[in-house]
Design a protein around this nucleic acid. Structure first.
Lengths: 151, 151
DNA sequence: GTGATTGCAAATCTTTTGCACTAAA
DNA sequence: TTTAGTGCAAAAGATTTGCAATCAC
């Protein structure tokens, strides 16, 4: 339960890398931002929505409000530390993996999994409409559990 | 302004095809459903969200409530008359084009445009994770206006 | 100390729902 | 007549915002 940062720890060694990261992004390394950044960037690729991250934070004993989780996710995204994934209508997902890649979306669980870009190749990208340029290509492969084979 | 259906018109010739379509889908051809179906299915491929369709209906002089627009879009989708497009977080889009295809998404206007499937080929679809099967692949090509070339 | 950040609660936005009324069959 | 469908307004779910209190520098 005391997984929480005592004030003195904010500028400690433990968070050195994250502090740099936030500073470089122009964000003040506050206790909440560091704790959330730790959940997002120190555990491999993460796909989260605000609610899920808030829950993780609660479980980790981090005292942070829902509003701050939302604000932080948006600030991190604006700063280029996260990117948005559009997988479900009605919900904002964020991805800590900034490399070029796509996603499996598990329809039953609502979770995402990365597909490295070299495992998914577009043979034929159409010309964008006149006056426009391609900003990004998002591919979502929706998967479902296979139904048990009939006996 | 009197674009609206008088009760007698509901079973008229004008809506014959749509009436069939709704009946086959197991939906009673009511005045509101027919009017919305007309907007959706008699003007080529449409990409709409509830609000946009409601606005179109208003402009066409159709008396329909927002709740009915939402319900109708969901019923049409459940009946296989529409499909959902996931393009933006926080909003439900529907597509009257049921054929296999993908989308351009115009980031500034928030509008969609079809990409016929033969103009967009996946060279390499990765194996789905064990125990799952691919239900659908959604590709969204996000485009932006090209910035005017420097003089 | 000063300005940025946080937390809370209220506000907003989109979508869904309950229920009395209306219309289709 | 009988049941499905509609409209309204209230509810619900997700996200944003205003403002006083708190924290980083």
């Amino acid at each position: 339960m005391d997984d929480q940062l005592p004030p003195a720890t904010v500028s400690s060694r433990r968070y050195g890398v994250l502090i740099q990261k936030l500073r470089q992004a122009g964000l003040r390394p506050t206790r909440q931002r560091l704790a959330l950044a730790s959940l997002l960037f120190e555990r491999g690729n993460q796909h989260v929505c605000a609610e899920a991250l808030y829950d993780q934070a609660q479980r980790a004993g981090i005292r942070v409000s829902v509003a701050t989780v939302y604000n932080t996710l948006n600030q991190f995204t604006a700063a280029g530390l996260l990117r948005e994934v559009v997988a479900v209508p009605g919900r904002f997902y964020f991805d800590s993996n900034l490399s070029d890649h796509h996603h499996f979306f598990f329809e039953v669980t609502g979770t995402l999994e990365d597909i490295p870009s070299d495992r998914m190749v577009l043979a034929h990208l159409p010309e964008p409409p006149a006056g426009t340029a391609v900003a990004r290509v998002d591919i979502v492969v929706r998967v479902q559990p296979v139904k048990p084979s009939p006996v």
